Simulated scan of single mutants.
Amino acid sequence: MSESPSAVPGTQRPGGRTAKVRRAVLDATQETLAAGGFPALNMDQVAAAAGVGKTTVYRRWGSPVGLVADLLRDMAEQSLPAADTGTLAGDLRANAALVRETLTDPRMGAVFRAVIAAAAFDEECARALGGFYRTRLAEWAVVAERAAARGELPAGTDPLELLRAVSAPLYYRAVVSQEEPTPADAERAAAAALAAARAGAYAP
């Protein structure tokens, strides 16, 4: 994302009480999104659920979108690092499994659906969601870079396009066609992306 951390509400992360306040507010934000979606994200109610003064929440986060943006940054920071199974096939399967597990988790799946829905009509929320995925793709790009170094991929393969190809079918099922992605779907998505990459689909 283009904004500097100091310019975005809620992104300062000093220790002590300030960090505890941020954690409590983001936990309350996540619970609210999971239970009622973006329309239910009321600043006063989040403050009450977090046990934090309303003035503090309005001053630091500014709006419901500010809460969502900071929640996405926090989720990116807390996400698991990229897998290193020793093969590209194994790494892509791990990536697909992680995406599927997140989308089918009763709480996290609901949070992502709520944020994706909000991003469809709110530009700031869309930027925050895009920033989250850019961060995650960049963190996983190393699996393709390692594979290229091992000779498993054509030179110049775009790691971000490869990773998008793994997760796209799973998001389509979960968000567009409203189907719950299965482990078999995750395996298929990883295998299809790997076959396409080996054929040069993501190389110049």
Rank of each mutant, 00 (worst) to 15 (best):
A82R: 07
R146Y: 03
T102V: 12
Q78F: 13
R13G: 07
V166W: 11
G151P: 09
S6E: 13
E3I: 04
A97I: 05
A148E: 13
S4M: 13
A149P: 00
A155D: 05
L170C: 05
L80M: 13
A19M: 04
W61E: 03
R136G: 13
D91T: 10
G200A: 06
V176L: 15
G16C: 00
T102H: 08
A144C: 11
A149R: 11
S2K: 11
G156F: 03
M43S: 02
A7F: 11
A195V: 12
R173E: 10
R22V: 12
S79D: 13
T18W: 07
A82M: 03
G51L: 03
A35Y: 03
E139L: 14
R113C: 04
D105I: 03
P204N: 00
T135K: 06
V68W: 09
D185Q: 01
T55A: 15
A186Q: 02
L41Q: 02
Q30K: 14
A174L: 12
E187I: 07
V21W: 14
R113V: 05
A141V: 02
A126V: 10
A197S: 11
R188C: 11
A155Q: 08
Q45D: 13
E123M: 09
A24G: 00
A195C: 09
S177Y: 01
A69L: 08
A149W: 10
A193S: 08
Y58F: 10
V142D: 01
G10L: 02
A191R: 09
A114C: 00
A76M: 12
P9V: 12
R146W: 05
K54F: 05
F112Q: 14
P5S: 10
P64G: 03
A193V: 11
V25C: 07
T29G: 02
A117W: 02
R164E: 15
A118F: 01
E101T: 06
A48C: 06
T56A: 14
A114D: 04
A47K: 11
S6I: 07
S6W: 08
L67F: 04
V68Y: 01
A196T: 05
E3N: 06
A89N: 10
P169T: 00
S4E: 15
A148W: 03
Q30S: 14
A138K: 07
A199G: 12
E187M: 00
T18Y: 12
Q30A: 15
L153E: 01
Q78D: 15
G53H: 08
V65H: 00
T11P: 03
T56H: 07
G62H: 00
G90K: 06
V68Q: 04
R22E: 08
A110M: 08
A196I: 06
Y171R: 15
R107Y: 09
A168P: 10
T11L: 13
R173I: 11
R198A: 09
T56Y: 01
E3Q: 13
R198I: 08
A50G: 11
T32V: 11
L153V: 01
V176A: 15
G37E: 07
S4A: 14
M108C: 08
V166Q: 10
A19L: 07
Q12T: 13
D70V: 13
P183C: 03
P5L: 10
R198L: 08
M75C: 02
R107L: 11
Q12M: 14
A114M: 07
A193M: 09
Y171K: 14
F38D: 05
G53W: 03
D27H: 12
T29I: 03
S167I: 07
V99S: 12
G62W: 04
A48Q: 13
L41I: 07
P5F: 08
A191I: 02
E124W: 04
T104F: 01
